[in-house]
Simulated scan of single mutants.
Amino acid sequence: MNRKNKELLSVENLKQYFPIKGGIFGRTVNNVKAVDDVSFTVYEGETVSIVGESGCGKSTTGRAILRLDTPTSGKVEFDGVDLVSLNKKQMRKMRKDMQIIFQDPYASLNPRQTVRQILNEAMEIQNVVPKSDRDDRIAELMKTVGLQPFQADRFPHEFSGGQRQRIGIARALSVDPKLIICDEAVSALDVSIQAQVLNLLQRFQREMNLTYLFISHDLGVVRHISDRIIVMYLGKIVEIGDKESIFENPQHPYTKALLSAIPVPDPEIKKERILLQGDIPSPIDPPTGCRFHTRCPFATDKCKEELPVLESLSHMTEGHEAACHYAKEIETGEHKPTKDITKVR
């Protein structure tokens, strides 16, 4: 990825709260703070991955960007247009350039429609292909994703999981988008099929200059496809940087724990895994200060009271930022663990 490429997507102070109703009158008594003050940019032609445990706010961030959920506050600017300020009609036009591939390739396809109807519907809504040319376009899309044109007259249940995901990709490509959000797009597939779909996505990126926001919990997949990586925990970004710097020189204790869980294919290699203690706190009432302090082996009173900000330290690669009060001291060994670190082989 060339950082000289233009900025395609800019997310500033994005918040996505879901109200909790209670009482006789159904008033809002609290909020689920799914995404809480998140900011990042995505450049044209790159792949930015968002990683973290289930419930960290990855998918909600993607949905908020596309306005599938209306953001509580913040700014989402795509190709120079502020998406949050658009009405439904204006947003529908913008969705031509912003598509999504969902996690479940079966649930995201209408079981009552053939593949031809599914692909035709997308082109009709966005009016991107004349009606007389749509059958040829559908045949071309089917070939592009590795399926046969005659299969377009079949229903989704007549395909395997990997084939259904290819149909989801074809639907996203049918309107010639600039940005595709891949929400756990390969997590439901077998490993061999995952590789095929990932290679397909990378080929399309090269040929069509696509930009991806790739949401996943599988760090092995993320390492294969990403240019930059965003690590989220409980609705906040705790680390962001280039793929190489995140994997080779992680700074946040949470990132280190995630990376330690990546399986090694060689049984002869013994690898230590860091086991985090305790459960993920509730996003309804997140901890004060650093949200990771309840599970962090390096936490102090400062971590409980002060919220760390994303910052780049002198020993980190340019563009690599971490939200940890003691990132540098932990790296140099000056800051010791405040409780035992559980490690297993």
Score class of each variant (00 low, 15 high):
residue 5 N to E: 12
residue 6 K to P: 03
residue 13 N to T: 03
residue 14 L to W: 12
residue 24 I to T: 11
residue 26 G to F: 10
residue 32 V to N: 04
residue 36 D to H: 09
residue 39 S to L: 02
residue 39 S to E: 04
residue 43 Y to H: 15
residue 46 E to P: 03
residue 52 G to V: 10
residue 55 G to Q: 00
residue 56 C to L: 02
residue 57 G to Q: 04
residue 59 S to L: 12
residue 59 S to D: 13
residue 63 R to K: 11
residue 64 A to K: 13
residue 65 I to N: 05
residue 66 L to W: 01
residue 68 L to I: 15
residue 73 S to Y: 02
residue 75 K to C: 02
residue 75 K to S: 13
residue 83 L to D: 15
residue 85 S to D: 09
residue 86 L to T: 06
residue 88 K to I: 12
residue 106 Y to A: 01
residue 108 S to Q: 01
residue 114 T to S: 15
residue 117 Q to W: 02
residue 120 N to P: 02
residue 123 M to Q: 14
residue 126 Q to G: 07
residue 132 S to I: 06
residue 132 S to K: 15
residue 137 R to L: 00
residue 139 A to M: 01
residue 140 E to W: 13
residue 143 K to D: 08
residue 143 K to T: 14
residue 150 F to S: 10
residue 154 R to Q: 10
residue 154 R to D: 07
residue 155 F to H: 15
residue 156 P to M: 14
residue 159 F to K: 06
residue 161 G to P: 09
residue 162 G to H: 07
residue 166 R to M: 04
residue 168 G to L: 09
residue 171 R to M: 00
residue 174 S to L: 00
residue 177 P to A: 01
residue 178 K to N: 12
residue 184 E to V: 10
residue 187 S to E: 03
residue 189 L to A: 01
residue 194 Q to H: 05
residue 194 Q to N: 03
residue 199 N to R: 03
residue 201 L to K: 01
residue 201 L to Q: 01
residue 205 Q to T: 01
residue 209 N to V: 00
residue 209 N to F: 00
residue 209 N to K: 06
residue 209 N to S: 01
residue 210 L to V: 08
residue 212 Y to A: 03
residue 215 I to H: 04
residue 215 I to F: 01
residue 216 S to R: 10
residue 224 H to E: 11
residue 225 I to R: 12
residue 229 I to G: 11
residue 229 I to D: 13
residue 230 I to K: 07
residue 232 M to V: 10
residue 233 Y to S: 02
residue 240 I to T: 05
residue 247 F to A: 11
residue 250 P to N: 07
residue 256 K to T: 09
residue 259 L to Y: 08
residue 260 S to I: 08
residue 265 P to K: 14
residue 272 E to G: 13
residue 275 L to N: 08
residue 275 L to A: 09
residue 280 I to C: 12
residue 280 I to H: 12
residue 281 P to V: 05
residue 281 P to E: 06
residue 283 P to S: 05
residue 287 P to C: 11
residue 288 T to G: 09
residue 300 T to D: 05
residue 305 E to A: 03
residue 312 S to P: 05
residue 314 S to Q: 14
residue 319 G to K: 05
residue 321 E to I: 03
residue 322 A to S: 12
residue 326 Y to P: 11
residue 333 G to D: 05
residue 336 K to I: 03
